[in-house]
Design a protein around this nucleic acid. Sequence first.
DNA 1: CATGAATGAGACTTCATTCAT
DNA 2: AATGAATGAAGTCTCATTCAT
Lengths: 219, 219, 219, 219
Amino acid sequence: MNSSAAIADSDTPLRRRRKQARPQELLDAALALFVEKGFAATRADEVALRAGVSKGTLYLYYPSKEELLKAVIAHFLSARIAQAEAALAEVSGPVAPALRAMLSAWWMALYDSPASGVFKLVITEVRNFPEIAEFYLRQVVDPAHALLGRALQMGMASGEFRRVNIDDAVHSLVLPLIMLCLHRHSLGACAADSRLEPMRFIAGHINLVLDGLAQPAPN
Amino acid sequence: MNSSAAIADSDTPLRRRRKQARPQELLDAALALFVEKGFAATRADEVALRAGVSKGTLYLYYPSKEELLKAVIAHFLSARIAQAEAALAEVSGPVAPALRAMLSAWWMALYDSPASGVFKLVITEVRNFPEIAEFYLRQVVDPAHALLGRALQMGMASGEFRRVNIDDAVHSLVLPLIMLCLHRHSLGACAADSRLEPMRFIAGHINLVLDGLAQPAPN
Amino acid sequence: MNSSAAIADSDTPLRRRRKQARPQELLDAALALFVEKGFAATRADEVALRAGVSKGTLYLYYPSKEELLKAVIAHFLSARIAQAEAALAEVSGPVAPALRAMLSAWWMALYDSPASGVFKLVITEVRNFPEIAEFYLRQVVDPAHALLGRALQMGMASGEFRRVNIDDAVHSLVLPLIMLCLHRHSLGACAADSRLEPMRFIAGHINLVLDGLAQPAPN
Amino acid sequence: MNSSAAIADSDTPLRRRRKQARPQELLDAALALFVEKGFAATRADEVALRAGVSKGTLYLYYPSKEELLKAVIAHFLSARIAQAEAALAEVSGPVAPALRAMLSAWWMALYDSPASGVFKLVITEVRNFPEIAEFYLRQVVDPAHALLGRALQMGMASGEFRRVNIDDAVHSLVLPLIMLCLHRHSLGACAADSRLEPMRFIAGHINLVLDGLAQPAPN
DNA sequence: CATGAATGAGACTTCATTCAT
DNA sequence: AATGAATGAAGTCTCATTCAT
């Protein structure tokens, strides 16, 4: 705006841009390493090295390794949950086809992104850092569960689905997809398994559960 | 049972008897702590303390913490897989009811036992110790997957089930139950969740998937 | 000496300057302690303490106690051997007087320096770390033996010395002087011995052996 | 003597014999290991194992590892010193030939026996256990030095030897032979050295020094 | 006497965190 | 703001010594 600002800007444009990008770069590096090796087995130097900064710089942005962990978990969630809520809010008419399409797309995108590792991180570390449990339940589990519960409820109300325990059905639908993300970052990273084709499984599983929910009860 | 065993028992001096029980006690303690805190965050002294021995004694039985981990993973698996194979081998006639009964019982018992924690341990540590991947795949994943695959195959051959991808179906059936065990030792250990009733979910999920597999394809 | 070095020195911040001096300080401390107490009986903390740094700093410079040992042995040798080679290379004319002067000076200086302890270190530790054997033989024993062997050979060729086994003569000349260094760091450090006056013995022994080599063979 | 003793004897003749042999077996094992690996780096179990007994038994005979070390050093010395004194006491007539014969025989036998390792042990450990210094000086160094000093004195008195510092001459004579024993248990145990033929060197060195002492002063 | 299971102090080494530059 | 040298608490593992059998 004024000349001094202009000078400051032109003085360090790259530095400023890098400085602003630092937190994201550190979070990316931390996520990758925490997911791969576990929180306790990841050294602070490794995170800094992967983010391209020195060890000291890491501590300029996060006061401790533990705070970095919490930031990682908090960061890689919010946007996606909100996005799912928006997508389901627009559904009108038969709920099953909409769920099929929307869930497949959402989980496939998540599976393919580094954010899929957050599940492993939460599973692994939540008992050592109870604050994480509360945060994760409030910010992720509760909204997502409620979202899907409402969708299934709508399907039952409309007669598309038969009446079963809604909470169980949500879990039947979602737990294997979470498990798939866990697998990607554990056994799946060690050895390929021809029996498990992730994209096919995501679609197939959603179909299977929605079919299981559909009228009439068989067997 | 037989007299020689009885004599051996009463003959066995206390030292000898304790020595024989040590490995099991150490494995129990190690499983509980590794599952709760993670391998890297568990101190060798803690394991020893929980097993009621000194730190040095632990190293009399396992040459390193890592070997202890491997022993834990190898130990809490074999018997249960074999038992499941035996149970399914006896099935004749309609396969769906047998699966319902047998799977429910097997998973409920596993869920309630400390062995359920091994899943968390494998998920968490397999990338740091690649040996574990091979062992686990060969000794647990492969046999169990083959077992269930054969059962579903029989159901399709007899017309009980419609034809879907068998591998996916096995995963749809099993992954949520593994996820349930993971949950028990992570979030579930931090906060009760009234939406998830483990025993109800085990039965409900098995029903849901088997229903989803049943003829005719709905929707 | 030159201006750029002077500038570099005065420019160098304290941290940098200390970092450059660290290896030498650590090697000095390690030599003193390893020679005094033995490698196995010296604790890493002691070395660090004597060098004026913390335990962790030691490991910033040497990755393990064993590598520190190897560095100590490698360090306190090279210069002196090279210096001896240079001194003997200049000899022309009668070899005996030159040897008398040069050997006396060289061994007296060595005896008085901490480097004399390296002999004890090698004697003591070589069987536990076979790498040391190869290094020491190639870098110290072989060059030094060859050097003296050539000198005695010259003396025999010129008729100054009578013909005896050259290797034995080298050993007769050198082994007591090494033994004197060992003594300084073992029994000699515990109790004074009026019978052994180091400087007198160095000169006396060299004379005795060169006299023993001189023409004609007596007795 | 009496019947109970007879019974005891016939009761456990083998055991008694082994029990009496135990201290010697333990000392042999300890000497070999202490010389090879050093005192601090030798584990008590290793000594017991090499002696064919259990770890506990070692402590029945020696109250601590340190006491075992002292016993080892004290044990492998006495007889040989006494024997040397007896041999030199008988000398009459020219002393040089007698010294040549007697010293060669004595050092060759010592070099070939495990007792040669004691020198390394003393050199290595004397600073950690000052008691050893006093014992070794009184029991070994002083008598042996006095013995040889008297012999050289006789040679000078009779005109066989020219007059030099007697203490230095004793050291010139003896230190290389000690050094040879050290070498056998350090570098010599790691790599053969064709330049050093022990038996040839023992004889050659003794000749060289006695020649160096002989009349007239050359050079 | 002899054993060997058990102990726990103490060694080496790592790594989260600090701070002078 | 950024660095990286330095620290020292804490962890894994060893081993001299004890003692119940």
